[in-house]
Simulated assay, not measured.
Amino acid sequence: MTPEPGEPKSRYLHYLEILTGSLEEKKRWRQYKARVKRLPDDYRIAVEALERYLMHFGPADGPGAMTMYEDVADLFERSAADGTPIRGIFGDDPVEFVEAFMANYPLGQYRARERARFTSAVARAAGDATPSRDRTQT
Rank of each mutant, 00 (worst) to 15 (best):
R30S: 15
P40D: 11
Y15A: 13
Y15I: 02
I18A: 15
D41S: 10
R28Y: 04
L16T: 03
L16A: 02
G21P: 08
D41N: 06
E24Q: 12
H14I: 02
Y32K: 02
K37Q: 06
A34F: 08
L39E: 09
I18E: 15
R38S: 01
R35Q: 14
R35C: 08
Y15F: 06
T20W: 12
H14T: 13
T20I: 14
R28L: 00
K37G: 06
L23P: 03
K33R: 11
R35Y: 12
R28F: 09
I18Y: 15
P40V: 00
Y32L: 01
S22C: 05
Q31P: 05
R35W: 12
H14M: 14
K33W: 13
Y32D: 01
L16G: 05
L23V: 05
L19R: 00
A34Q: 05
D41R: 11
G21S: 02
Y15C: 14
T20Y: 13
G21V: 07
E17R: 03
L19N: 03
S22G: 00
L23C: 01
P40C: 03
L16R: 08
K26D: 06
K37T: 01
H14C: 12
E24F: 09
A34Y: 06
Q31G: 11
E24D: 15
I18W: 13
E17K: 03
L13R: 03
E25C: 03
E17Q: 11
R38P: 09
D41H: 07
I18S: 14
E17A: 05
L23M: 02
G21H: 01
Y15M: 14
W29C: 09
K33F: 13
W29L: 15
R38F: 05
L13H: 00
T20C: 13
K27Q: 15
V36P: 10
E17W: 02
Y15V: 08
P40K: 06
G21C: 10
L39Y: 06
L13N: 02
R30K: 15
V36D: 01
E25Y: 02
K37E: 05
E25T: 05
